[in-house]
Amino acid sequence: MARRWLMICPKRTDDRGNPLPPSESELNTIRNCPIRLEQIRLRLSDVSWWMRLMNQRVAQRANREDGSGGRFFEDRFKGIPVIDDESVLACAVYVDLNWIRACMAETLELSDHTSAQRRIEAITAETQAPASNPTSAPDDPSEAADRCVRPLADSFLAPVDLNEAIELPGPQPSPCDTRCSDKGFLPISAAEYLELLDWSARQSAAGKPGRTPDNLPPILIRLGLSPTVWLELVANFDDLFTTMAGLPENIDQRRGKQTGRRFHVQKRTRELFAQAA
């Protein structure tokens, strides 16, 4: 047990970071201490400790390869709470526009590996598919079973539309094995989301063809966001929201679980939402 632990958490490593076999003195520091031995026994049988040590090893190796330091997710990925519909929508658009922003695609249809592309493919397939039996009810089990047997391109994605007025609160398990839940995440339809996404892409991608529509998408009017405010939100989402994403007044009401302190809201974020008010 002592040897196994010291190979996982070595006292000494070679030039490549690989553990060196423990010496007898290193082994005896564990063997001769019953309290330490029992502690290590518990840790070796704890899945949480195993994950912790694995993450540490991955982080150390990645940092060596990248020439960086700190936690593995530092400056690589960022996960922050997204607490209201406005920020969920802005975050979704921000992610779906990655390919266009990086000049790797000109249209949503050509933006590979994005949920937008999958949703467009699914809508296209549904449009071209033969009409379903008009006498069957919308929630007919046979219709649902057919959708599971012949899944669409976006069948593994969460639905867009969330109608809280008619849908029951709580989880909505999916009858298909392609996804866990059939619960949506935005109070708009998939068509409205794609319309807004397409409009945002044409407006925010410099040098792309297209023009500003005469009438703004209805969702912008409902959210009370001007085109300028909206475009800056989806273009700089990562910079505008550093600890939590949401309306400033909603963030101000939250407190950290451990410290009880407020979350910081960027000055520019407050200015943008003040313009939209």
Rank of each mutant, 00 (worst) to 15 (best):
1 M>I: 06
1 M>E: 06
4 R>N: 07
5 W>I: 03
8 I>P: 00
9 C>R: 06
9 C>N: 09
10 P>I: 02
10 P>C: 03
12 R>W: 00
12 R>D: 01
15 D>V: 00
15 D>K: 00
16 R>W: 03
17 G>Q: 00
21 P>Q: 00
25 S>W: 01
26 E>M: 00
26 E>G: 00
32 N>G: 07
34 P>G: 08
34 P>T: 10
36 R>L: 15
40 I>M: 02
41 R>W: 05
41 R>P: 01
42 L>Y: 07
43 R>G: 07
47 V>F: 07
48 S>E: 14
48 S>M: 10
49 W>N: 09
52 R>K: 09
56 Q>V: 07
58 V>H: 05
58 V>K: 03
59 A>S: 05
61 R>N: 06
61 R>H: 12
63 N>M: 09
67 G>Y: 09
67 G>S: 03
68 S>C: 12
68 S>H: 06
70 G>C: 02
71 R>T: 15
71 R>E: 12
72 F>R: 05
75 D>V: 10
78 K>W: 09
81 P>W: 09
82 V>H: 02
85 D>W: 07
87 S>K: 04
87 S>R: 05
87 S>Q: 05
89 L>D: 00
96 D>Y: 05
97 L>V: 07
97 L>E: 08
97 L>R: 10
98 N>E: 15
99 W>V: 06
99 W>D: 12
100 I>G: 04
100 I>T: 05
103 C>Y: 13
104 M>V: 07
104 M>C: 08
105 A>Q: 08
108 L>K: 06
109 E>G: 14
109 E>Q: 13
112 D>V: 14
112 D>R: 15
113 H>W: 13
119 R>F: 06
121 E>I: 08
123 I>S: 05
124 T>V: 12
124 T>K: 09
129 A>H: 01
130 P>S: 07
132 S>C: 01
134 P>F: 00
135 T>A: 13
136 S>E: 05
138 P>W: 01
139 D>I: 03
140 D>R: 04
140 D>M: 04
142 S>K: 14
144 A>P: 05
144 A>W: 06
150 R>P: 01
151 P>T: 11
153 A>K: 13
154 D>V: 12
158 A>M: 11
159 P>T: 05
171 P>A: 15
172 Q>P: 02
173 P>V: 10
175 P>I: 00
179 R>D: 08
185 F>H: 05
187 P>I: 04
188 I>T: 08
190 A>D: 12
191 A>G: 12
195 E>A: 14
196 L>S: 07
205 A>I: 07
206 A>M: 09
209 P>A: 08
209 P>L: 06
210 G>E: 02
212 T>D: 08
213 P>L: 12
214 D>I: 11
218 P>C: 11
218 P>W: 10
221 I>H: 11
223 L>S: 12
225 L>H: 07
229 V>C: 13
229 V>R: 10
231 L>D: 09
232 E>D: 14
234 V>Y: 01
235 A>Q: 11
239 D>G: 14
243 T>S: 14
244 M>R: 11
245 A>L: 09
246 G>D: 01
248 P>A: 08
250 N>L: 04
250 N>H: 11
255 R>H: 08
256 G>V: 03
256 G>P: 02
257 K>T: 05
262 R>C: 10
263 F>N: 14
267 K>R: 13
267 K>T: 10
269 T>C: 15
270 R>T: 13
274 A>Y: 09
275 Q>R: 15
277 A>I: 14
